[in-house]
Design a protein around this nucleic acid. Structure first.
Lengths: 110, 110
DNA sequence: TCTACAATTCCAGTAATATCGAAATATGAA
DNA sequence: TTCATATTTCGATATTACTGGAATTGTAGA
């Protein structure tokens, strides 16, 4: 993870519809949801959502799986964990501190 | 934390100079750094950085402390932890899952 | 008070992003 | 093949964001 990659991921999430989609996918789990279902749930036209899904995909925050006419989108958990680790990297210069932002041991192992 | 607040925080971080500043402040710890020091480290004019610091401040990601002619900026760790919790909320519908994005027990207690 | 310095605000130009109608692509069913 | 559905691409417009020079505010020291 580097600055540019992190900016791309953060920018992908920094939009109403895209953040809503991402959270729905995190809650939906590994199987994901079809593009049309997401469009209806978020309340935007399918073409507009397609644009946003492309943005999330290019940032590697979501993955796609094709099944017949449907395209299922799912959250990429590894990308989020890497982003969180990057944001909290070397928190407080490595000294022990109460307000830790660094990933927990469990998270790093995931 | 709600969608709009999270979007504002993510948008604040989704910019090269601002992300660089934020990470420097996370590593600097609670004492923070003066605006001028940040401008020099990031390599942008003071007025441009001031604009970016205002954006980070409005998103509550950084706090300010005045001391004489200097203004010290520091990272707001609570805001980041709240954002991370929001992003991983109800991961996989609450079912136990390997790729957890939800905050660790230690993080929630911080 | 006068000067120096830190930081911010103002302003204008430029660039990037969001939106959605219409058209195109692709798969499945009749 | 023909039709219906799912999704994406195209194109044009509107909105928002980034940048940095110049001017301003505020504090400290001579």
């Amino acid at each position: 993870m580097n600055n540019a990659t992190a900016v791309e991921a953060l920018a992908a999430l920094a939009q109403d519809s895209r953040l809503a989609v991402y959270r729905i996918l995190v809650q939906a789990g590994p199987d994901g949801l079809a593009a049309g279902v997401l469009a209806e749930r978020v309340g935007v036209p399918p073409n507009t959502l397609s644009f946003h899904l492309k943005t999330l995909g290019h940032a590697r925050l979501v993955a796609t799986r094709h099944s017949g006419r449907f395209v299922y989108y799912s959250a990429n958990y590894d990308a989020m964990n890497a982003l969180i680790a990057f944001l909290g990297d070397n928190c407080c210069g490595g000294r022990p501190c109460a307000p830790v932002v660094a990933p927990s041991r469990a998270r790093r192992q995931a």
